[in-house]
Design a protein around this nucleic acid. Sequence first.
DNA 1: AGTGATTTGTGCGTATGTATG
DNA 2: CCATACATACGCACAAATCAC
Lengths: 83, 83
Amino acid sequence: MDHAALDNDALDPLYVQLAAILRGQIERGELTRRVPAVKALAQQYEVAIGTAERALAILKDEGLIATSMGRGTFVVPEDERPK
Amino acid sequence: MDHAALDNDALDPLYVQLAAILRGQIERGELTRRVPAVKALAQQYEVAIGTAERALAILKDEGLIATSMGRGTFVVPEDERPK
DNA sequence: AGTGATTTGTGCGTATGTATG
DNA sequence: CCATACATACGCACAAATCAC
């Protein structure tokens, strides 16, 4: 349950896979408030920092999360999300 | 008029500045059909390839350009653009 | 009051993969 | 087969903002 979970030979690139994982956690309510730091995500899923950042950029673009420099990354409450 | 044009100490980051330049060229019709290759843009504006890629990613997101692997990057005709 | 740790943001450089021509 | 060009991935460094001490 804390395996790599990411497959470099899969159809989708790593950052898309990671975004999908986190999106699922958010939508299922398994991930609330605070999102682990980029560095932590990178270590946990064994990807480069840049790859984790790209994953977060997707979710940020979707309005699922919001970032604040120096503070961290946070899950946007469901009733404040677009769409 | 082929100076750097980019200022690392400006308010906006380099990739945003570059995106703005290209957006202006497209909107004024100075840039049509083909967009210079990422590598060429990086050399011309003296930025890293990754920085030029980020600039193009913005315009791609806006629907101003479209990329095709192995072929290049192209300006989307005005009547096919979103918005 | 300032110093250091943490965290996001930007930027550079490189290597490799994939598709096209 | 080889050149071109975009896409992904890694690693690193530093800046900027925040926070704890």
